[in-house]
Amino acid sequence: MIEDARPRKILRTLGLIAIVIAFVFPVYWLLSFSFKPERLFFDLPPVWTFDPIVTEWVNTFRTLKLWETIINSIIVAGGSTLLTILVGTPASYSLARLRVRGKTDIMLFIIASRMAPAVALIIPFFLIYQFLDLLDSHIGLIFAYSTFNMALYVWLLTVMTRELPADLEGVAEADGYHPFQVFLRIGLPLMRPSIIAVGVLAFIFAWNEFPFALLLGGRTTETLPVVAARSLSAGGVEWARLAVISTVMVIPVAVMVFFLHKQIVRGLSMGAVRG
């Protein structure tokens, strides 16, 4: 291809800057709200410079016991992600690489479980949990989250694992390794970038989940989205508090993506396994 001329390069850089601003601005706006005095919120034109205050942060953490909520969220989202990875990884490997009877049917079944709206699932869950005494328990939420996350995880990971070089397993078996050993020593290391990428996705879904948390959870298992929702009431919207909670919710996701973005990109593009 004919190489880029200089003016085209500059144009492209400007375009990229515009796109970055479009994506970063809402995050900045949210963050600025949590440090802005409330009276400046709706000034037009917007106030760009102000003395940041931390009162709303202190208040929110103290009055809402936000630490407990954060820990709840971590337990539930983390636990369900871990469970999904533990169970979903061998399942995906088997579906992608082994001769499994009725493979396509199983895959269709998996994707079908994602198609039902959450509300349709909540009622049976509620009744079952009531019977098993799992309402308002961490373990109950972990299981509930794992059902919808598992479908996503297995579906995506299976598709990605199929892209591993063909004949790897045959060669490893000929080298004297039992299929389970082959999974551990060849399959798993090669699936790692995909596991991380899809795992992060599953965590984000669980972290932001609302209807299950609202109806199957309770006082002791309240998660961040539930608390955030309580800032909106008939009495009005508590903007500052909402900004604080939202910021808290964004932080772990941002941190995770920041540290793992290479792995995620590799996992999603599967470039890692093409030798």
Binding site: A166, D167, L168, G170, V171, A172, A174, A272, V273
Partner: peptide, 10 residues
């Protein structure tokens, strides 16, 4: 077995 597609463990 040396496979025709000579796969290596990547």
């Amino acid at each position: 077995l040396v496979h025709e597609s000579y796969v290596l463990y990547p």
